[in-house]
Design a protein around this nucleic acid. Sequence first.
DNA 1: TGATTTACTTCAATTTTTGAAGTAAAATTC
DNA 2: GAATTTTACTTCAAAAATTGAAGTAAATCA
Lengths: 189, 189
Amino acid sequence: MTQELLYPSMGLEDALLLRSVGDRRHVAPEQPRRDQIGDAPQVSCFDLARLLERSSRRFSGLVAAELTRLGVDDIGPAQVMVLLAIGDTEVSVGELLDRGNYVGSNISYYLKQLTDGDYIDRVTSQRDKRSARIRLTERGRQLCADLRDAAKLFERSFCGEQDLRDLAAAFQALHRLELVWANAARYGV
Amino acid sequence: MTQELLYPSMGLEDALLLRSVGDRRHVAPEQPRRDQIGDAPQVSCFDLARLLERSSRRFSGLVAAELTRLGVDDIGPAQVMVLLAIGDTEVSVGELLDRGNYVGSNISYYLKQLTDGDYIDRVTSQRDKRSARIRLTERGRQLCADLRDAAKLFERSFCGEQDLRDLAAAFQALHRLELVWANAARYGV
DNA sequence: TGATTTACTTCAATTTTTGAAGTAAAATTC
DNA sequence: GAATTTTACTTCAAAAATTGAAGTAAATCA
C-alpha cells in the first residue's frame, strides 16, 4: 500500500492526516492497531464503522462541491442520492425503501424536496392508488447524467484498474457484512 | 426486474449478494451490473456510497440495541464511537479530530455529553493550557469493554475466517478510496 | 510588546432523523 | 358485503446532529 511505503512508521490514520489535513503537524506517537508488517492489520467493526462514516462524509462533501459547480443549490447530497437511487425506471416509494437506506418518513421528506425542486414527478398509481409512482423529470435526469459523468471522469483520473477491482471486492465484502448486521438487528444480537 | 420476481421481498442489493455468496440455485437470467463471467461486478461510487451509508446505519442500530441492553440510555451510538475512538490512552481534542470523523464544534458537542454522563474526564493539560486532555472514566472504560466484548462475540458467531480477511481487505481498499476522495476535495475535483 | 496562531468552546441556525399518528386504498375475514 | 386488518404511504412535532461564525485564552512569532 503506497502510503505505508511512504510513511512506514505511521498508522493509517496518520498517513491520512498528513495528506488530507495539510496544516496540522502533529502526529500521534504510537500506533496501537497495527500488527506485523505484511500481515493484514487487525480491524475491529468499530474501526470499520468509523471508516464508513468518514468515507460517507467525504463523499458527500465531494458531491456537494460538484453540485455547487453545477449551479444546483436547492438540494444537497442526500437528495441527490435518492435521485440516483431512483434511476431511469419508474419506482414506488416502497421500492426505494427496500433499496435500503431510508426510513419511511425520511424518504417522504426527501421526495418532497425533490418534487419542489422539480427533479421528480409523482403520480399515484392507477392500479394501486395508495402507491405513488416516481420518476425523474428531465431536470432530474440531466442532473444524474452530469453527476455520473463527473464520477466517471473522476474515476478515470484517480483510480487504476486494480483500485477498481479492489473496490468491487470491498463492495461485496461490505455488503455481506451489512446483511449480517441487518440479520443481527432482526433476530436479536 | 427479474430478481424481484424471484425474491419479492428482497431489494436489488440482496439479490446481488445472494449471487455473490455462492447460492447459485436461483441465479437471475439477467444481471444488469455484471460484466463478463469471471469479471468483477461493476460498482459505481454512488452504489458504494449508498452501501456505506446503509451499513453505517445498520451498525448504529446494532450499537443502539446493545446500549439499551446494557441499560445505557444517556448516550447513543455516535457518542459511543467517540468513546471508543479515545481508547485507553489520554488524548487531546485535536487528536480526536485528526482521527478523522469530526469537525471541531461537533466533537465539543459530543464530549460535553460524555462528560455530563461521566464517561470521560477532561483535564486541561499542564504543558499547554489551551489543550484539554481527555480520558475515559471507569464508567467509560467499562462501557467500551462491554461493547468490545459484544462485538467479539458477534464476530465469532457470525463471521468466518474468510469473512474477516475479506473485511480487512475491504478496509484497506476503502481507506485508499477515502484518501482519494479527501485529496479530490482539497485540490479541486 | 504586539500580532498571529493554535486549541479549543459556545451559540444560533439549519438540516436530518426519528417516532407517533393520520389517511386512504387494498386485501382479508367473518 | 360489512367490518377489520394490512399496506403504502404522508404529516407533524420533537430530538439529534451538523454547520459556521464568533469568542476565549494560551502559546508562539516577529
